[in-house]
Each structure stands twice: as C-alpha cells, then as structure tokens.
Amino acid sequence: MGQVADTMARKLREAFAPEALDVIDESEQHRGHGGWREGGETHFRVRMTAAAFDGVSRVERQRSVNRALADELAGPVHALALELRGAAE
C-alpha cells in the first residue's frame, strides 16, 4: 500500500474497528481522467464491514467515512467508492 492508502486504513481502523477492511488504489484504472496524477493514490475503493454500521443507513455510513477521511478527501484523494456493511449483515 502507498502512504495515502496506509493513512486511510489507519484512520478507518481507529474510527470503526472493522472486522474486514480493504483499501484499494484504483487510480491506474482512471489514467487520463479528471483528478488522476502520476504515481496514483487519487482514486480509491474502500470495502469495510464493521459493527459500527449495524442499524445505520447507507447514507449515514458514507457520511461517517467521509468525516473520518476529511483530510484525504480535501487533499490527495479525488474519488472514493464505498462498499460498507454492518457486521450483522
């Protein structure tokens, strides 16, 4: 993982204590698109399962992840795809 991905994973672990977490750099798939930079770490997919999401709406799950990653979304991360599940799902 790169530096941005490592930072994102650390913040998500601290905020949500997930049972499963994947932070995937999909930047190369977006070569030439808006926000893409040489070296990647601009477009990510997060797959996370956490008890913290049990009983929480899809929108609020996304908002809570966006809050946890606010610095990255305001800086190096151009796009973030989220696949968020509760532990009970």
Results as ranks from 00 to 15, higher is better:
Ala15Leu: 06
Leu82Asp: 03
Phe16Met: 00
Trp36Cys: 10
Gly35Trp: 02
Thr7Cys: 06
Ala87Ser: 13
Arg37Ala: 11
Gly40Leu: 04
Ala50Thr: 15
Gly86Glu: 03
Gly39Gln: 11
Arg45Gln: 14
Trp36Val: 05
Glu89Asp: 14
Gln62Lys: 05
Val46Trp: 05
Arg10Thr: 14
Leu21Asp: 09
Leu69Glu: 01
Val56Pro: 03
Glu83Phe: 09
Val65Asp: 04
Glu14Thr: 15
Met1Trp: 07
Ile24Pro: 11
His78Lys: 01
Trp36Ser: 10
Ala88Cys: 09
Leu82Ile: 05
Asp25Met: 07
Asp71Val: 00
Glu83Trp: 08
Met48Lys: 06
Gly86Ser: 02
Leu69Ile: 00
Arg31Leu: 05
Ala20Gln: 14
Glu60Pro: 09
Ser27Phe: 08
Ala17Asn: 13
Leu21Trp: 04
Ala15Tyr: 05
Ser27Trp: 08
Ala68His: 03
Met8Val: 10
Arg85Asp: 10
Arg37Ile: 06
Val46Ile: 12
Val23Asn: 06
Glu60Gln: 15
Leu12Val: 12
His43Trp: 03
Asn66Glu: 01
Ala9Arg: 13
Gly35Arg: 02
Glu72Ile: 01
Arg45Ile: 05
Gly40Met: 05
Pro18Ala: 02
Ala15Arg: 15
Ala50Ser: 15
Leu80Ser: 11
Leu84Ser: 05
Ala5Tyr: 07
Glu26Leu: 13
Arg58Cys: 03
His43Asn: 08
Ala74Ser: 15
Asn66Ile: 01
Glu41Gly: 08
His78Trp: 02
Glu72Cys: 02
Gly35Glu: 02
Arg47Lys: 13
Glu28His: 15
Ala68Trp: 05
Leu69Cys: 03
Asn66Gln: 05
Glu28Trp: 08
Arg10Val: 08
Gly75Lys: 01
Arg85Met: 11
Leu84Arg: 04
Leu12Glu: 13
Gly35Phe: 05
Val4Ala: 07
Leu69Arg: 01
Phe16Trp: 01
Arg85His: 14
Glu41Gln: 15
